[in-house]
């Protein structure tokens, strides 16, 4: 059942998929940029700024999806104790945080012409901001221990705690928003979205999805090397004589 839980085997599959992901992501990105920036019409109310949506919305979807993936990996690490899930979560965190950041910045830039100000405590933007804080917390905790192997379990636990809290945070932020802002400032495309716009959105979602996954695979390669490196250093210590071991212990303390 845990055939793919073997990190080396998983990595072999991932390495084989990497060029495909990069290629597909690149092609979709070109198509999406063409469709989004050139072929699709401007909105009659928002004019050209509607084109920000093709970057903003996919980034938002993927940032949330990546956090969910991180939590799944962390949960599998906590339950079955195989390290792959934890390594995947660690590899995904910076990519998800970058997407979250892109979503926030494009949201703010979009806000200027649409709302007249860069930042509004709109429910969607606010919950993305909190998601970014959760990403930061995870990355900080994962790297906060002098003995790096000690950070795995706390970080995994935090990812799971975070994913349990996200619905609560989202709900409370929306609740807060309905009380403080009586009118929604703008309605997103909704079901009546122009098919050209929908196509651009889907292409960009696919492009960013493949590219972000490719980036996560590259980072996973790094995380695996970290583990091997640590094991190799440990082996080096064991070959040394006992006195040197003690000295090493003292200097690391």
């Amino acid at each position: 059942m845990h055939r793919f839980a073997n990190p080396a085997r998983f990595m072999r599959v991932a390495e084989r998929l990497l060029p495909w992901f990069l290629g597909l992501g690149g092609i979709l990105l070109l198509a999406g940029l063409y469709q989004g920036l050139i072929a699709s019409p401007a909105d009659y109310q928002q004019h050209e700024t509607v084109r920000i949506m093709y970057l903003h919305v996919p980034a938002a979807i993927l940032a949330q999806g990546f956090y969910f993936g991180m939590a799944l990996g962390s949960a599998s690490f906590l339950i079955w104790k195989h390290p792959l899930g934890d390594l995947m979560a660690r590899a995904m965190a910076p990519v998800g945080a970058a997407l979250c950041f892109i979503c926030l910045v494009t949201g703010a830039i979009w806000g200027k012409p649409t709302w007249g100000t860069y930042w509004v405590w709109d429910a969607r933007l606010t919950s993305m901001l909190i998601l970014l804080f959760l990403y930061f917390g995870y990355m900080a905790l994962a790297n906060a221990f002098d003995d790096p192997s000690r950070g795995h379990k706390p970080a995994a636990l935090l990812a799971v705690v975070g994913v349990v809290n996200i619905p609560v945070i989202k709900f409370s932020v929306y609740f807060f928003n309905t009380l403080h802002q009586k009118s929604t400032l703008f309605a997103e495309g909704g079901p009546s979205m122009d098919p050209d716009m929908l196509l651009a959105l889907m292409l960009m979602l696919g492009a960013l999805g493949f590219l972000a996954t490719a980036m996560a695979i590259i980072r996973l390669r790094g995380e695996m090397t970290v583990v091997k490196l640590r094991a190799a250093r440990h082996g080096l210590n064991r070959h040394d004589d006992a006195t040197q071991d003690v000295k090493h212990e003292e200097t690391t303390r």
């Binding site: 050139i38 072929a39 699709s40 401007a42 004019h47 050209e48 980034a59 910045v105 590219l211």
Partner: peptide, 28 residues
Amino acid sequence: EGDLGSLLGGGRHAAFVWWSYAIGAATL
């Protein structure tokens, strides 16, 4: 309004669009 000319020539608020994509590309 839909073609590149108007976007590059600064069809309304085009600069905001360019900034968004530039920051996205730079981050990734």
